[in-house]
Design a protein around this nucleic acid. Structure first.
Lengths: 217, 217
DNA sequence: TAGATTGTTAATCGATTAACAATC
DNA sequence: TAGATTGTTAATCGATTAACAATC
């Protein structure tokens, strides 16, 4: 009988909060790099975000050792390493479903494009919008084109920005076509196959945490 | 010497995650209420969000006892109670700083308006935008009008949707004028007085958690 | 070298999960 | 009543924080 190989499936669980912080560090390193700074310590990174230095080192330690004892980190190298961890060393082709206020704001969000996230297809159910050509040259298509376009363009990532009622159907189309990760704005719950990652963004909830704070302070 | 009064300052720390879930429950209860359903159990609420029933009860228990053993919760009453906890039983007057893509998407986000969040003032630095009248009748004003308008309109909540470089200055204006809670889109760090709550929304970070997932699954 | 700073192990803290008595 | 379901206390789990040996 095959023996249990601990090293194999024992990948330590990495907190999502650590990944989110790495994303922040990466941004900060990029801006320092463009200023020509060469090295940085965990303390310096931490200070920017109001964190403790060991938090930064801990976050990095999930993925390897990237610094030099007594010296700190090479900004250029650390940025590159974190970029690789986060998958930012390549381009991602995305589909946007829903060309309303929020959808279009995401579409025009310049920072995403520069990070390698490219919205290659846009879908909407509104006949008045279908056929419209957007700034980048992308033409808005009907929802029933999702399967075809996702396949054709090799889309891996979807942004859902439709009304709640339409969210499940749109999610179904995307996942059926092979999309494995979805950024989801509508607040209704959606069910997806369990190998699909859904990251929810809910401005209503965010705002209500603030009204809670104001009410209960 | 005055004795220590435990009941006073011993407010148990309530996890933000619990507040966020209450906000979700509230939405769900509102939609059930409009369907005419009258009671619900913690198990039913939990199922909608893929949670365990005791999670729902625990979240509620931070604030009191709202149900009936053996029977569940009155939807109408529970919704009202959670609404009070979150501060949704009143209107909130908000300022939006930055009338770009994201700012305008928030401005037009219908759900917020119906929840009692009203954007009563909009500011931008672009002379081409200043003076423009928006759908609701609000006129875009220059940033130097922030102190005056915030005072005049009794604004308590701010939405920051300016480029990162402009974030700190805009936050300073808002907090100097008395704003105590800020929803913040720009990714740069901002410093605010410690009695001000800042809720950050960072689509770049959210998207990168997805590219991390796709890269490392 | 001495001072600085990392990487990692151990301790603490807080949120989630479980269990169950209360009670409708 | 018996079955259902709450509210709460206790146990577990996981993330953060602290401490420190390694080493540049």
């Amino acid at each position: 009988m095959a023996s249990h190989v601990p090293a194999m499936k024992d990948k330590i669980k990495i907190p999502e909060s650590a990944i989110r912080r790495l994303s922040l560090y990466h941004r900060h390193l990029a801006s320092l790099q463009s200023l020509g700074v060469e090295t940085i310590s965990s303390r310096e990174i931490a200070t920017v975000y109001g964190l403790a230095p060991f938090q930064v080192r801990k976050d990095l330690s999930y993925f390897g050792t990237f610094g030099h004892r007594g010296r700190g980190y090479s900004i250029i190298k650390l940025r590159e390493k974190i970029g690789k961890i986060l998958g930012l060393d390549r381009a991602w082709t995305m589909a946007l479903v829903g060309a309303g206020n929020i959808g279009m704001a995401v579409f025009r969000y310049q920072e995403l494009r520069s990070q390698g996230f490219k919205i290659a297809a846009v879908f909407d159910s509104d006949p008045k919008k279908i056929g419209k050509k957007l700034e980048s040259g992308v033409v808005i298509k009907a929802l029933d084109q999702i399967p075809h376009e996702v396949q054709r363009l090799g889309i891996e990532l979807g942004v859902l920005a439709v009304p709640s009622e339409a969210a499940q159907a749109a999610a179904d189309s995307l996942t059926a076509a092979g999309v494995k990760a979805i950024l989801c704005f509508p607040s209704g719950q959606i069910n997806v196959p369990k190998d699909v990652a859904v990251k929810r963004v809910n401005l209503g909830v965010d705002l209500e945490t603030l009204s809670y704070f104001l009410t209960n302070r």
